[in-house]
């Protein structure tokens, strides 16, 4: 099946990277940001939650970006949206008088109410993202950011996060909260601007979960989604001429002395492990394609793990490759 109608990942305004915890959302976000900056785009990459990882992945010496953000590389800004800071900024824009806003945000009862209230963190974060997407460049030559990348929270919550505008619209009858939620929803649902980029592992349970996720995003939330990133794929372990190398190794004398090489018994186990993981990844990549109806882009599993800019740049071309269906 040919993969048509996909535009390049770099052709979006807003890319929301989502998926189950541990699938590599942060790696994908950082890689896409780097690729976009190298392609000459003005790019902003956003993290949420407690920790900040992307600046360090792109440059081990990078300072903490925080809410104010920080230019990590030419054309590439990173920031972390803290909901309370976003709220203070929003209230400042609404009321103009900073002193009132500060008094309110510092008010203990107000903080208690906000800390206990679910949902607003997601909404204010999305509102801030919406606001950032509206900014113009200083010289008014176009948008301030050509591409905004959001490293979203893990799946269960990641989907709830995108669902908050809809929930607010149905719960709140009128007022600015509803209006803001509608604006955010319009941005999310605009296929010319926004893409959800799911990241999965080619394993049984993650494959099933990504099917649920893509289904909800497409059908319930009506947000555009055009491919699945399959991360940490173990490539073919043996030369094509030797598909059963692990079995051949197992037929040798297991304790044969091989000097500094491990004995055949150990070699056979290593080979069997790599082959099993490779075949498992193939099988579930195919299943992801079948259950989601989406083509995939595969990123290789790097033996040393993701440590910094070396690994991130080595993944760029694989991430930007056209999504494909397995033959």
């Amino acid at each position: 099946m040919a993969a048509s109608a996909q535009r390049s990942l770099l052709g979006n305004r807003l890319v929301i990277v989502t998926g189950k915890g541990g699938t590599g959302k942060t790696t994908v976000s950082a890689t896409l940001a780097l690729a976009a900056a190298r392609a000459g785009l003005r790019v902003l990459v956003i993290e949420m939650g407690h920790g900040e990882q992307i600046p360090r992945l792109l440059d081990p010496q990078a300072p903490v970006a925080g809410y104010a953000g920080c230019e990590i590389l030419p054309g590439l800004r990173a920031m972390r949206i803290d909901p309370f800071e976003a709220l203070a900024e929003y209230l400042g824009l609404q009321f103009g008088v900073r002193a009132i806003v500060d008094a309110v945000v510092r008010n203990k009862a107000f903080r208690q109410l906000m800390t206990a209230s679910p949902g607003w963190r997601e909404l204010i974060t999305l509102g801030k993202i919406w606001h950032l997407a509206q900014l113009d460049a200083k010289d008014a030559s176009g948008p301030r950011f050509d591409l905004i990348i959001v490293d979203a929270p893990a799946t269960g919550h990641g989907v709830a996060f995108l669902d908050v505008p809809r929930v607010v619209i149905s719960a709140v009858r009128a007022g600015p909260l509803r209006k803001n939620a509608q604006r955010v929803e319009r941005l999310l649902e605009d296929p010319d601007q926004t893409l959800v980029l799911p990241v999965a592992l080619a394993e049984e349970l993650p494959a099933r979960e990504i099917a649920e996720l893509t289904d909800r995003v497409r059908n319930e939330m009506n947000i555009s989604i055009d491919r699945v990133i399959v991360n940490a794929v173990v490539g073919p372990p043996f030369p094509d001429a030797l598909p059963d190398l692990d079995e051949a190794l197992a037929r040798l004398d297991g304790d044969l002395e091989l000097g500094a090489l491990p004995p055949p018994r150990v070699l056979a186990r290593c080979a069997h492990y790599l082959r099993s993981r490779h075949e498992l990844n193939r099988r579930f990549t195919a299943e992801i394609q079948e259950t989601t109806g989406l083509p995939t882009v595969e990123l290789p599993r790097l033996p040393e793990g993701i440590q910094g800019p070396d690994q991130i740049s080595s993944l760029m071309s694989a991430l930007l490759a056209d999504p494909v269906f397995l033959a």
Binding site: L91, Q94, F95, G175, P176
Partner: peptide, 17 residues
């Protein structure tokens, strides 16, 4: 002080909420 908090909340959320 509380009036102010309530006013902000109301502006933020709408009366119905």
């Amino acid at each position: 002080g509380t009036q102010r908090v309530l006013q902000v909340l109301e502006r933020l959320t709408g009366i119905g909420f």
